[in-house]
C-alpha cells in the first residue's frame, strides 16, 4: 500500500531487531510522515547514538550519522547550526537520551533548537544487556536489578516540557497511525520537538519480567494507553501504570538558528563587514 523502498537501504535488510521489537513499526510510521511532508532524501539528516533504536539510520537512505553513546543530540546540534535549512531528526533510546545524554537532551530543549527527537522508550537498555534505565518502572527486573528496581522512573515527556521544548507528544507502537501524525507535526514544528514512543522490548525486558510474548506486550500497551482527553477525567490513582498519549505541548517560541542568524546579521551591519 505504501512504497517504503525509496527511503530504504535495501541491501542492509533484514532488520537486526529481535522478533516482536516495535522499532520497525516506528521506522515505518516515520517514513510515512516524511512522505506526507514531501521531503526528499537529501533534505534530511538522521542522527543517532548507541542502542537498538540507534541502529535505525543504517536502514534509511538519508544523510545519516551514527555517533557515540548519548551524544546524538550534541552531533545533531552541530549539523543544524552548520546547515540550518536541513531537517535534522534524532533517533534515540530512553537510556541514550535521558541517562548518558541527559544534559544534551534538556539543554537542546532549553535552547529550542529546531531538532526533531524521536525517543524510543522501551524501559530498558536493550542492546547493551538489559541494564536498568531511567525509565524502568519500580519493581521491574533488569540485569542490574535482579531483585527489582528501586529507583523511581523519569517522565521523559515531562522533562522535555519543563526544559522548554516547543512540541512534545507521546504515542505507542500500537497506535501507529496516531504516531505517524505526531511525527509529522513534530517535523513540521519549528523548534525543539520530542515524540516519545512506547515500544515493547520482548527480549531484554519482557522475558525477564514474565510479560509474555511480544503480542501480549502490545496488547498490554493497548489496554494501558489513555488519551489526554480521557486522562483529564481520571484521578492520579487511576492513572497509575497508564500511558497518557497525545500532544502534550505545542507552543510557538523563538528558535535558536533563526535568532542566531538575526544576531549575525545585526552585527555585520554594525561592524560593516560581509
Amino acid at each position: 500500500m505504501f512504497e517504503y523502498a525509496k527511503y530504504l537501504r535495501l541491501n542492509k535488510f533484514p532488520l537486526i531487531w529481535c522478533a516482536g521489537c516495535g522499532d520497525g513499526i516506528v521506522l515505518k510510521a516515520m517514513l510515512r510522515a516524511i512522505d506526507k511532508i514531501g521531503l526528499s532524501n537529501d533534505e534530511i539528516t538522521m542522527v543517532s547514538g548507541i542502542g537498538c533504536s540507534s541502529r535505525l539510520p543504517g536502514y534509511v537512505d538519508f544523510n545519516t550519522l551514527h555517533t557515540t553513546h548519548g551524544r546524538a543530540i550534541a552531533f545533531a546540534t552541530g549539523v543544524k547550526i552548520a546547515k540550518p535549512e536541513m531537517t535534522v531528526i534524532v533517533v534515540t533510546g530512553d537510556g541514550d537520551a535521558t541517562a548518558i545524554g541527559g544534559n544534551h537532551y534538556i539543554h537542546a530543549a532549553r535552547r529550542n533548537l529546531d531538532l526533531t527527537v524521536i525517543l524510543f522508550n522501551n524501559n530498558i537498555y536493550g542492546m547493551t544487556g538489559g541494564q536498568v534505565s531511567p525509565t524502568t518502572p519500580v519493581g521491574k527486573k533488569a540485569s542490574t536489578s535482579p531483585y527489582g528496581n528501586l529507583e523511581p522512573s523519569f517522565n521523559i515527556s515531562g522533562l522535555a516540557q519543563a526544559a522548554g521544548a516547543s512540541f512534545v507528544a507521546r504515542g505507542t507502537v500500537h497506535g501507529a497511525h496516531m504516531l505517524e501524525k505526531f511525527i509529522e507535526k513534530a517535523i513540521r514544528k519549528k523548534g525543539f520537538s520530542v515524540v516519545e514512543v512506547i515500544t515493547p522490548c520482548p527480549t531484554a525486558y519482557g522475558r525477564r519480567n514474565r510479560m509474555g510474548t511480544a503480542v501480549n506486550m502490545i496488547q498490554d500497551l493497548k489496554e494501558n494507553a489513555v488519551t489526554l482527553k480521557k486522562a483529564a477525567k481520571m484521578s492520579p490513582e487511576e492513572l497509575e501504570g497508564k500511558v497518557v498519549t497525545g500532544v502534550l505541548v505545542d507552543i510557538d517560541k523563538p528558535e535558536y538558528t533563526e535568532e542566531y542568524a538575526k544576531l549575525s546579521e545585526q552585527l555585520k551591519n554594525k561592524v560593516g563587514v560581509d
Binding site: 500500500m1 505504501f2 517504503y4 530504504l8 535488510f13 533484514p14 532488520l15 531487531w17 516482536g20 521489537c21 516495535g22 522499532d23 520497525g24 513499526i25 521506522l27 515505518k28 510510521a29 507502537v173 500500537h174 501507529a176 497511525h177
Partner: peptide, 17 residues
C-alpha cells in the same frame, strides 16, 4: 485491505495490495 497488518509489521515483510 485496511492495511493494519502492513502498518504493524516491524520487519517490512508484509504488503497489502
Amino acid at each position: 485491505a485496511c492495511g493494519l497488518c502492513e502498518v504493524l509489521c516491524p520487519d517490512f515483510a508484509i504488503e497489502v495490495i
